[in-house]
Design a protein around this nucleic acid. Structure first.
Length: 221
DNA sequence: GACCAGGCACATC
DNA sequence: GATGTGCATGGT
């Protein structure tokens, strides 16, 4: 099922923006911090990620070289609050190794690579999948990529626009092909989806108060 | 105390 | 190629 149109996507955006205003998503003091946060937030609530990011900063580890140089036990310890700390320590390090080997540890240099090639490279890093790669591309590298997450799929499905098992790439294409290729729009759209999802679209949704309408299937026309 | 959260890789059939 | 499983913490 695919009933997505440009008009409907703009309507969704408009309703969420009316409710929340500007989200300024994604928070972070640097592109590197955003990339690390993208890995740490995998299947994890953002509040837990914030604690781990604070720990990384307090330990002066918020740069790729420091993360590669520190002992595994120490890195794992600062990541404990974000959950899955053993796998995430490996994944963060895999990204740091990639960044150091290919771009001398510079996110700025990395971001100069063409979008498609960079996306392929990121996906080859063990621990970086589609969503994490796209988070990094959009929010850390300012590339016009639409980030799809569980909320995106859930919200569009509940409004009768796509099937619940639509593949990641397919859903990403629907947004990218129907909207202007605009980094600011893509950032805000995803930010609004995250906020709406957190407030109203968990597995047990509170559709009554949702800015998108009182029922899962609303008239978006 | 159960259930859930913005994933991902790997094993198995 | 589809389906299942491990990974771990903190909030509700």
């Amino acid at each position: 099922m695919n009933r997505v149109t440009r008009k409907k996507l703009l309507k969704l955006y408009e309703r969420m923006a009316e409710h929340y205003g500007t989200t300024h998503w994604w928070p972070g003091d640097s592109a590197f911090e955003i990339a690390v946060g993208a890995i740490l937030t995998q299947n994890t609530a953002w509040t837990n990620v914030e604690r781990a990011i604070e720990n990384i900063k307090k330990a002066s580890l918020m740069n790729p070289k420091a993360i590669m140089d520190c002992r595994t036990a120490k890195l794992e310890k600062v990541l404990v609050p974000s959950g899955y700390f053993r796998v995430k320590a490996k994944r963060v390090r895999n990204f740091c190794a990639y960044l150091l080997d290919n771009y001398g540890g510079s996110m700025k240099k990395m971001a100069k690579r063409p979008l498609e090639e960079l996306r392929q490279e990121l996906l080859e890093v063990n621990g970086i999948g589609s969503e994490t790669a796209d988070d990094i591309l959009l929010y850390a590298c300012e590339k016009p990529v639409f980030v799809v997450d569980a909320y995106t799929r859930r919200i569009l499905h509940r409004h009768g626009l796509v099937s619940s098992d639509i593949p990641y790439e397919e859903l990403r294409s629907l947004f990218e092909n129907n909207l202007d290729s605009d980094v600011h729009l893509f950032k805000e759209y995803h930010g609004l989806i995250v906020w709406t999802g957190k407030d109203f679209c968990k597995r047990t949704p509170k559709c009554e108060a949702c800015p998108l309408g009182p029922k899962p299937a609303i008239n978006l026309g």
